[in-house]
Design a protein around this nucleic acid. Structure first.
Lengths: 161, 161
DNA sequence: ATAACATTGTTGCAAATGCAACATGTATTT
DNA sequence: AAATACATGTTGCATTTGCAACAATGTTAT
């Protein structure tokens, strides 16, 4: 009795059936929805800037690299988004020390909080609608699974941020 | 006794805490991992082309717009990816009728199947490693939740494909 | 002390991506 | 029959995005 050695006998997974790829597809849908909402509702900031504003609302005194690590974009583009938000008056930047190094820290302004709050309120209905299709338990499992994936991948891959 | 009317009393959700945003972040991790794997292993096709090849392996005789709808990219870029795959000999294209309209259909070639199979085998270990961090039940719930989200969003948003 | 290295932010460039416009041909409406 | 709308694919352009190189400064090793 011999074990099969021909690779043809191995059941091949399809990448397009993998959780990673389904994640990518679903993320594209979410992004399209977000863009559509912004086109209807807001001409002042982009979805990207909105996410950065929300990040800054939850975290004070971050340097640019810390922000880049949170939003998972490179330092170059993070700087560009911050340039735009600063020009519009939604954030203010100042120089400070971090580990004895000079860094540019960023705080959200009163105007930034206001537009963030208004947009969040406007998106509340759609957000609730999206949450209502799940049970609370499924949302918890979903979020936990996503976090598990991120933790697992961050051990394998260097994000270069 | 009066009900509060001030919006300050409403608990505001943070977008960065929403499933959509966590999805986007997780998807960025997955994409970074995929790019890293391709850099190490494959110089012939890109991750994007890999996904299209896998889609074509699972579906015969798709026209370009059908492919675009499956991979969620616009017709323009879908055509460009197919141009590249055709030039490399991994797909073949032919004109055909669909609903009495002339369309360009696409099939994967023998060479396409071979490179797809080889890459899939090479990625098998990392795929299993990613799956092993979940219970089978959690994977089912994750995939079901993602599908639910896509279905819900596709009712609200027009993808322009 | 000096060289090598690490951290932070910026600039320039190239690749990827999306969008609008167009060309072609078919279906539908008037 | 003519006009209008729709479906498919292509082209051009503008925006987004990532990457590599650089400047400035602080840390570590030799």
């Amino acid at each position: 009795m011999t074990m099969p050695t021909n690779t043809d006998n191995i059941k091949i997974m399809h990448y397009t059936d993998s959780p990673s790829y389904e994640l990518e597809l679903t993320s594209r849908y979410c992004k399209a929805l977000l863009i559509q909402l912004f086109n209807q509702v807001c001409s002042e900031i982009s979805p990207e800037e909105f996410a950065v504003l929300d990040t800054l609302c939850c975290n004070k005194g971050l340097c640019q690299r810390d922000i880049a690590k949170l939003i998972l974009k490179d330092r170059a583009n993070t700087g560009r988004v911050l340039d735009s938000l600063e020009k519009k008056g939604f954030i203010k930047r100042y120089n400070d020390l971090k580990n004895n190094r000079m860094v540019r820290k960023t705080d959200i302004t009163k105007e930034g909080r206001e537009i963030l709050k208004e947009l969040t309120l406007r998106f509340q209905p759609i957000h609730e609608r999206m949450c209502k299709i799940f049970s609370n338990e499924d949302i918890l499992i979903l979020r936990a699974s996503l976090k598990k994936m991120r933790d697992a991948i961050s051990k394998i891959v260097d994000m270069h941020i």
